[in-house]
Design a binder for these strands. Structure first.
Length: 420
RNA sequence: GUGAUCAUAGCUCAGUUUGGUUAGAGCAUCUGGUUGUGGCCCAGAAGGUCAUGGGUUCAAGUCCCAUUGGUCACCCCA
């Protein structure tokens, strides 16, 4: 048997209503904030992600699905969408058409990581990017949208964490201070963190190792090294969140891995999904557009993991997505009338109803069971004495009332079904 | 990439410790409970090379080894 590739999953019909419900909420809230959907290709030139995300990041250095196409170009399945959206923004000169571009997306991403709870190799994200403004209110808007979507799904065990990484020059200065501090405590650090010291020093704050944690408790914090402009920006974000009634915690250790972040970073973390607890993450990236060959314009955005969100919803039993009910199931009593049933089903469907009929030549009892299984609101009996007399029988499945209708009178059938 | 753990019917799981007749249950499926009517109930049926390959043994679902796959965690990230 050929199985789905490691880390990929089939979303079966039974799960589709939950996905549709989530996507409806996502699209509704984004459009209320006037974000417009953008759809970019599933694959891009590899160098887009290498430059946009950062060569040294784990995503680029070991997690991308990269391949050569037949003409020898190196292509990569998108591991995230910020770089693609910025590429499209630059390529189509969207900044020339309006001052601020507010964009959102929904779709699959690909990273070759070891699967675990809430982590897959093909996974789905929704996210938003606002390109062209420095306004800290937009940083706040991102956090508010993410929070509103997740809260609308009924999730409770949430923590919104925010931090500021400031501008690159202040950050570099701080890194030197931090490196000095850590070098003094080198013997107390885990082996992992000694490597991080060279590769990505800020991430030592994220370590789950107890030794690292105790060292980091007394470490100097980036927030104390921010320039006054960055502090001002951060304060405005915080007060906007307060006014929006979004509960948040300032977490000075929230550093995030991707190269492009400046100023605000944030995460929404769930307490009900296991170890991979970040439902969404994002922040401001003021250098990225220029880095990708565009004008020197700022941006801010976030991305959320849909499998993780749905996992949290399932664990907290936070919402029920109902399958759409069948309006009428046409039951064929005499097998010779299957053609009539098929035609009637078609006519009713073209009158805007959800209709099913029998294709297995089953007994009336079996067809009734099937209608019941489909939650059909009505059944329509075709056959027997009534049919000989030119009638079909419409039965309401919730109160068992039956009514004979002239078999040619589709309008009457449609009318009776639609009032329910 | 590293580690732990698991693999028996479509699904959830007994049975493995102490190897021993035809491998079980619940749910789901199908058929029937009078000739044309669902949900509940009852009866019956179908469904498994016990992940795969090797080994030990008179005998392996059960013990040993390998492989494959799943799950969880680390790393990292949504």
């Amino acid at each position: 048997m050929i199985k789905a590739v490691t880390g990929t999953k089939d979303i079966l019909p039974i799960e589709i209503p939950r996905w549709n419900y989530l996507e409806e909420i996502v699209k509704k809230i984004f459009s209320q904030f006037n974000y417009r959907e953008i759809r970019t290709p599933i694959f891009e030139l590899t160098q887009l992600f290498a430059r946009g995300i950062g060569e040294a990041t784990d995503i680029v250095s070991k997690e991308m699905y990269t391949f050569l196409d037949r003409s020898g170009d190196s292509l990569t399945l998108r591991p995230e969408l910020t770089a693609s959206v910025v590429r499209a923004f630059v390529e189509h000169s969207l900044d020339k058409k309006q001052g601020l571009n507010k964009l959102f997306y929904v779709g699959p991403m690909f990273r070759q990581e070891r699967p675990q709870a809430g982590r897959f190799r093909q996974f789905h994200q929704f996210g938003a990017e606002a390109l062209g403004s420095h306004d800290p209110l937009l940083d706040a808007e991102m956090i508010i949208m993410a929070y509103d979507i997740i809260a609308k799904l009924g999730l409770k065990k949430l923590v919104v964490k925010i931090n500021s990484l400031g501008v690159p020059s202040a950050r570099e200065e701080y890194k030197t201070v931090l490196r000095d501090y850590l070098n003094q405590h080198l013997d107390k650090l885990s082996e992992e963190s000694k490597k991080r010291l060279e590769l990505n020093i800020l991430r030592i704050f994220d370590s789950k190792d107890e030794r690292d944690k105790s060292v980091m408790k007394a470490a100097p914090l980036l927030i104390d090294y921010l320039d006054s402009e960055s502090i001002d920006h951060f304060e405005k974000v915080k007060s906007a969140l307060q006014n929006a009634s979004v509960p948040f915690q300032v977490d000075a250790t929230l550093v995030r891995g991707l190269d492009y972040y400046t100023h605000t970073t944030f995460e929404v973390v769930s307490g009900s999904v296991g170890s991979q607890s970040a439902l969404c993450g994002g922040g401001r990236y003021n250098g990225l557009v220029k880095e990708l060959g565009g004008p020197d314009l700022p941006g801010v955005g976030f991305a959320a993991g849909m499998e993780r969100i749905l996992l949290a919803c399932e664990n907290e039993n936070s919402f029920k997505a109902e399958e759409e009910k069948t309006d009428v199931f046409i039951i064929t009593i005499d097998k010779t009338l299957q053609g009539f049933s098929f035609q009637t089903a078609l006519a009713l469907r073209r009158s805007d109803l959800i209709v099913e009929t029998d294709y297995l030549s089953r007994s009336v009892k079996a067809q009734m069971r099937e209608a019941n299984r489909l939650n059909s609101k009505f059944v329509l009996f075709v056959g027997g004495d009534e049919f000989v007399n030119g009638e079909v029988v419409l039965k309401n499945m919730s109160n068992s009332e039956q009514k004979n209708i002239s078999k040619g009178n589709l309008e009457e059938i449609v009318k009776l079904i639609k009032v329910n």
